[in-house]
């Protein structure tokens, strides 16, 4: 066979092992490719170093890594100049536009719409107070035990101010799918 000749040329250096014959399958006595063995040894050496580094020389644990990450994030956090004591109702168009966008993107309606999970925000009744400061606070800090999500880790104070203003100015009296009926006090 031509194949055999070509084959023998390619593998002049490898011998058939004569006593190895399994249902016609023969084996050659080639050594394993050296690169394969070197990488194998290298991986063993690497492993020894790895274990030494983390368990003998006390390299950083995953909790150490976490603490570092959190400290860095804290250091990078922009300073907040928002004055939470004196919140004012925003009335400009820009604030209204931002407010409606945020109200949609944070899916407030998932709870305050047809599902009736949260209160109707379009009526004059408020459980937690109907002034801008109260609405700001409930959005920012939520009311976890009642199921109102705190949004302080998702929205900046400015943004919360915009949504709160939007609710009090534009949402009031708007058509709603919420059918819970009045809750809290009329303001």
């Amino acid at each position: 066979m031509a194949n055999d000749e070509q084959y023998n040329q390619e593998t002049q250096d490898s011998k058939l092992m004569i006593d190895h014959d399994y249902d016609g399958i023969k084996e050659l006595d080639n050594p394993p490719p050296p690169w394969l063995m070197y990488i194998f040894y290298a991986s063993i050496v690497w492993s020894v170093f790895y274990v030494f580094y983390y368990h003998v020389y006390d390299g950083p644990s995953q909790i150490d890594e976490y603490n570092t990450e959190m400290a860095e994030a804290e250091a990078d956090r922009p300073v907040n100049n928002f004055d939470e004591e004196n919140i004012v109702l925003l009335t400009d168009d820009a604030a209204m536009a931002e407010g409606v966008k945020l109200y949609a993107s944070k899916a407030c309606d998932a709870c305050h719409g047809a599902s009736n999970i949260g209160a109707d925000l379009t009526d004059n009744f408020w459980i937690n107070g109907g002034d801008v400061a109260s609405v700001f606070k409930i959005i920012k800090y939520g009311k976890a035990e009642k199921g109102m999500t705190p949004f302080q880790s998702q929205l900046t104070d400015e943004q919360i101010n915009q949504i709160a203003s939007y609710i009090l100015i534009k949402l009031k009296g708007a058509p709603t799918t919420n059918t819970k009926g009045p809750e809290g006090e009329e303001i």
């Binding site: 092992m17 084996e27 050594p31 394993p32 394969l36």
Partner: peptide, 20 residues
């Protein structure tokens, strides 16, 4: 089994078989 059978070729390295 099936690869050397179908290719009709000897297995490349017996030593590698043992090691791996």
């Amino acid at each position: 089994y099936f690869l050397p059978k179908a290719a009709n070729r000897p297995v490349y390295s017996y030593k590698l078989s043992i090691i791996h």
